[in-house]
Structures are given as structure tokens and as C-alpha cells.
Design a binder for these strands. Sequence first.
DNA 1: CATATATTCAATAGAATAATTGAGTATATG
DNA 2: CATATACTCAATTATTCTATTGAATATATG
Lengths: 228, 228
Amino acid sequence: MTSIDSRTFKNQVYEQFARITKALANAHRLELIDLLAQREFSVEELAKEAELSIANTSQHLQVLRSASLLEQRRDGRHIYYRLADENVFRVWQAMRELGEARLAEIERIKNDFMRDKDSLRPLSAGELLKRLQDRDVIVLDVRPEAEYQVGHISGAQSVPLARLETQLRELPQDKEVIAYCRGPYCVLALEAVQKLRAFGFRARRLADGLPDWQLAGLPIEQDEGVNI
Amino acid sequence: MTSIDSRTFKNQVYEQFARITKALANAHRLELIDLLAQREFSVEELAKEAELSIANTSQHLQVLRSASLLEQRRDGRHIYYRLADENVFRVWQAMRELGEARLAEIERIKNDFMRDKDSLRPLSAGELLKRLQDRDVIVLDVRPEAEYQVGHISGAQSVPLARLETQLRELPQDKEVIAYCRGPYCVLALEAVQKLRAFGFRARRLADGLPDWQLAGLPIEQDEGVNI
DNA sequence: CATATATTCAATAGAATAATTGAGTATATG
DNA sequence: CATATACTCAATTATTCTATTGAATATATG
């Protein structure tokens, strides 16, 4: 029963952590994780959102699952995947911060895309929280309704992008409208802000998405009868 | 000057983040990062610590550097590498927590190795802080002295493992001795505790290493004239 | 200025990864 | 119970990654 030596120990430990980093080492899998931070999705839904083939999506999901980053459940013909642990999102969040801090390319890509789309600085979570307490703003969750139901910023109303124009008349003109969506690389809030401004509203977007808000411990609500 | 579409935008962004995750997707590179969390090291030193060939170490370092995770400086014939950003360690820390939470293998490997080596529960940082304030313990930094000089827990004394036996007589017998080292997968504190107990001291180790202590904002000191 | 040292570079071979295709499996539906 | 749906599996090909080897480069030293 002789114990392993310290080099073997280190090799084994770092090899285990590398299982996780290898599972994360792919752009599509990062996008899948970013989606799964919203709610569980079926393979089909994920394939559609990430614009991948079903078989390819399935294989990527299995890579993530075999590194223990995802769990699945079957419901009829569908198999739903979800993040196995809050720490999965924490790692992605830390990675995002590292990338934003160190990779100038990311800044450039964002600027390229946002050019002319979003002249105003997005709000931080802290700023939004304060303005919510002052009852100074209207907050719109512009993600698909299923994601709103699983959890949303307290006081936000669900206005999926597709329904935005028809619901415009219900919004008060005197308050600034803040739109938020999935996260900093989700384009829904950006598009909502553009539309709102085109119709004469003062509108800005929240810098981060719901998962960041939630992890920061800020107030959220969920629709009744929804199991997370 | 037409802006890119949102799919291209997402692909580009996630591809950038994948540059980072790909750089991290290797056990040896994770070990190098864990070492570089202590201080800057030359290629030669890193190769020796991680038990890799020089050429292989150099190539791994360049992979990390091209993902902007490391920076280097030349001093004479030596090239010293360091973490480019505190966020690099934060990512590794988040990864460690995820692995400890999700990979049962890690628990098993640690138990295998620690068996008979460390019967007592290690201290958390919070516990050590309290006991330090009560002046209730002696704290030993058992890392190589160069790492102590760059930064150490306030009040800790430098007792590199190799010098431990000769310095034993200087330690008071009436207080518990707490040893700490580089991190949870560093074996130095474990070995120190074993030795101390063999000589009749009450001894335990700190669960995490200096970088975790430092990042938590807990009190550290550094030797004069040392530039970090 | 020749030599030693520390590191990088280039070439190579073997291993692992990614996307596609088509077949296979489990569940639901008429 | 045959058929459709949702997903997984297996095989293939192209690509990328890893470690090794030996040569090349930059700096220090006698």
C-alpha cells in the first residue's frame, strides 16, 4: 500500500483539471455554455441557437458532459442539457474578464460590430439597481419568454424582441427604458435599444446579462410553477 | 462600411475566448501557471520544477504567451516569465473550485496521496487569520526563500523545507505550528507538517497557498527591495 | 574573440480533435 | 404496429497538438 510519489500526484491532479480545460477549449462549446447559463435546452434548440448541425451539437454536448460540466434529463423524445454546477458559469465569467482585459482583439470585434449601433454607454448592474430603487426606469427582458420564466430581474417585464414593436404603445414615454438579454455577446438587447430609439424612446442596455445579475446576488423573480 | 452580421460577431468573439481556453487545455501548462502564481521564473527553473525538457517548457510558455496569459522579460541570458494579469490566477482558481466540486477523481487522487500523511483537517484562511490575531500560532512559509521574499503572509517566517530540521530548535513548543506553501497541490506544507509532528510539534497546514491568501485581500508582507 | 549558457526555432512523427455522413436507438403518434 | 422524431453512435478525413531532436540565436564570460 505504498503511496504514489509527489510527481505522479501532481501529474494526476493537473491532468484532471486539464479534462475541464480541454472540454472548454472550443468556441462552439463556449457558446453552448453561455446559452445553458440561461436555462436548460434540448439538443435541437441548442443546435438552432448556435447554428450547428444536430450531430455536431450532440457531440459537443457529450464532450462537456464527460468532463462533468453538464447534466442531462430525458423528457419524451427530447434530452435537455443544463449546467451541472454554478461554478461552470463562474469559470466562464472569469474567462470573460480575462479575455476582455487581455485580448485586444475582443475589444476590436465588439467595436466593429457595435459601430453606429450603440452610441451610449451600457449600464452597469449597480447603476441599474439604483435606478430601479428610484423607480426611475422601465426594465425590459428581451430574451425569449421561456428564459424570462425561469428567472428575470425583479420588476422587469418580458418583451421578447419579436413582440417589441407591438408592445411599444404600452410603454411610458417619460422614463428611460433599459433592455437586457443573455450576456455581453448576446445581440438582443442591442437590437431592442436600436428599435426603441427609432421610435423615440430614451433607451440603453444593461452591460451584462441575467446570469451575471443573478450570480451577483441581485434581486430576481421567477414565474410560478417553474422548476429550475 | 457594412457591419458584420450577428453570427459572424458571435463566432469571432467565442473564437477569441477559445484562444484562452485552448492555451489552458494542457496539464503541464496548468502546472506552469500554478508555479507562476508564486513569482516570475526563468524557463530553466520552470522546466526543473515541472520536470519537463527545456525545449518543451519553452514551447508551452510560448503557447501561453501568445494567448496573452504571460509576459516575459530578459535579464542577461535568462528570460523570466510571469502571469500577465491577476485574472489569469482568478480563472485557474475558479477552475480549481469547479474541479473540486465536480470531478470525483480529484478527491480520490488527493486521498490516495494524503493517506497517512495528513490526518488533521487543514486550516481555512479565515481560521488562520483569527488565530494570527490571537497570537495563538506560529506560521511557517515552507516555500523556497525566493518566493517568500516576493510576498508572504504577514508574520510568517521563511523556513524552506530543506532548512526545517536545523531550524526546529528556534520554534516554541507551546504553540501550534501552521505551515503553508504554494497551493492545494503543492506538497511542501504537507511534508513540513509530517516532519514537525515527528519532532513532537502540534502542526497543521493551511488549505490554500499564498496566492489565494493574497487574492482574498488578507495581510501580506514582502521583503524590502524586491520588485514584483 | 572564442566558448559556454539560456532559450528559441524548425522539422518530424504520433496522438488527439472536429465536422460530416449515414446508420442505429429510444420514444411518441396515428 | 408502422412511422416519424430526437438524439446518439461509428467511421472517416482533415486539422491541430505534443514531445523530441538537433540546429540557430542572443548574451555573458574568460
